[in-house]
Amino acid sequence: MIPLPRPRLLTSALLLGTAVGLLLGIGLSLLVTAKIRPDVVIALVVGVPGAIGMLTILFSRRRWMTVLGAFVIAIAPGWFGVLVAIQSVNGA
């Protein structure tokens, strides 16, 4: 059984994870200048945080671990949103 935290904590973790994902996406897009295939970038941006967060939630024994897993999962949409915004502004 997955231990569920209070809804306020879970919502806060998701909101903070999205904000961290936005900042992480902006920071790393300024830092990395190498040409990388888009499918590889999408797999890394969505797949890695999603897999780590899902495994953290599935194997959590404490409520704070579930919150941490939700936070890590929420990084992916924020980071992906920044990448989409950058591509749409660049006209690609």
Rank of each mutant, 00 (worst) to 15 (best):
Ile36Asn: 07
Leu28Ala: 12
Leu15Pro: 07
Ser29Gln: 11
Pro77Glu: 03
Leu58Pro: 10
Val67Arg: 03
Ala13His: 04
Met1Gln: 14
Ile42Ala: 10
Gly78Gln: 02
Ile42Trp: 09
Pro49Val: 00
Ile36Tyr: 08
Gly50Asp: 02
Gly25His: 03
Ser88Thr: 14
Met1Cys: 09
Pro7Ile: 11
Ser88Asp: 15
Gln87Gly: 15
Gly81Cys: 03
Val48Glu: 03
Leu24His: 07
Pro77Gln: 02
Thr11Ala: 15
Arg63Ile: 07
Gly27Ser: 07
Arg63Phe: 08
Arg37Trp: 15
Trp79Tyr: 11
Pro3Lys: 00
Gly25Leu: 01
Leu24Phe: 06
Ala85Met: 07
Asn90Leu: 14
Arg63Met: 08
Ala13Thr: 04
Val82Trp: 02
Gly78Lys: 01
Ile52Ala: 04
Val89Glu: 12
Phe71Tyr: 00
Ile42Lys: 06
Leu23His: 14
Pro49Tyr: 00
Ile52Met: 07
Leu23Ile: 12
Gly21Thr: 01
Pro5Asp: 04
Leu83Arg: 06
Arg37His: 14
Ser29Ala: 12
Leu44Cys: 09
Gln87Lys: 08
Ile57Gln: 07
Val72Tyr: 05
Met1Glu: 13
Gly69Ile: 02
Ile73Thr: 06
Gly81Asp: 05
Ile52Gly: 06
Ala34Phe: 09
Leu22Glu: 06
Gly91Cys: 04
Gly17Thr: 02
Val46Phe: 05
Lys35Phe: 12
Leu16Tyr: 09
Leu23Pro: 10
Val67Lys: 02
Leu30Phe: 15
Ile2Phe: 14
Leu68Thr: 06
Pro38Trp: 04
Leu23Trp: 12
Pro49Thr: 00
Ile52Arg: 04
Val32Lys: 11
Leu30Glu: 13
Ala76Gly: 02
Val46Ile: 09
Thr66Met: 04
Ala74Arg: 04
Pro3Tyr: 10
Ile2Thr: 06
Leu23Lys: 15
Leu15Glu: 05
Ile2Trp: 08
Leu15Arg: 05
Val48Gly: 01
Leu83Tyr: 09
Asp39Trp: 13
Val82Gln: 00
Val45Asp: 01
Arg61Asp: 08
Val41Pro: 01
Leu31His: 11
Gly53Pro: 01
Phe80Cys: 08
Thr11Leu: 15
Ser60Pro: 03
Phe59Ser: 12
Ser60Arg: 05
Gly53Leu: 03
Ile26Phe: 15
Leu31Arg: 12
Leu10Asn: 07
Pro49Leu: 00
Ala51Met: 13
Gly91Asp: 01
Gly25Pro: 00
Pro7Ser: 10
Leu83Gln: 08
Val89His: 12
Ala92Tyr: 14
Leu23Gln: 14
Ala74Lys: 02
Ser60Trp: 04
Val67Gln: 00
Thr66Lys: 01
Val40Pro: 07
Ala85Val: 06
Gly47Leu: 10
Val41Asp: 04
Gly69Asp: 03
Ala70Arg: 03
Leu9Ser: 13
Val84Asp: 11
Leu10Trp: 01
Gln87Cys: 15
Lys35Gly: 10
Val48Asp: 05
Leu14Gln: 13
Leu24Trp: 04
Arg6Val: 13
Met1Ile: 13
Arg6Asp: 13
Pro7Gln: 14
Leu23Asn: 13
Thr11Ile: 15
Trp64Cys: 08
Phe71Met: 07
Val67Cys: 05
Gly50Ala: 05
Lys35Thr: 14
Thr66Ser: 05
Ile73Gly: 01
Pro77His: 01
Trp64Tyr: 11
Ile75Phe: 07
Ala19Ile: 11
Leu28Phe: 11
Val46Glu: 02
Gly17Glu: 00
Leu44Pro: 06
Ala70Val: 06
Thr56Leu: 10
Val72Phe: 08
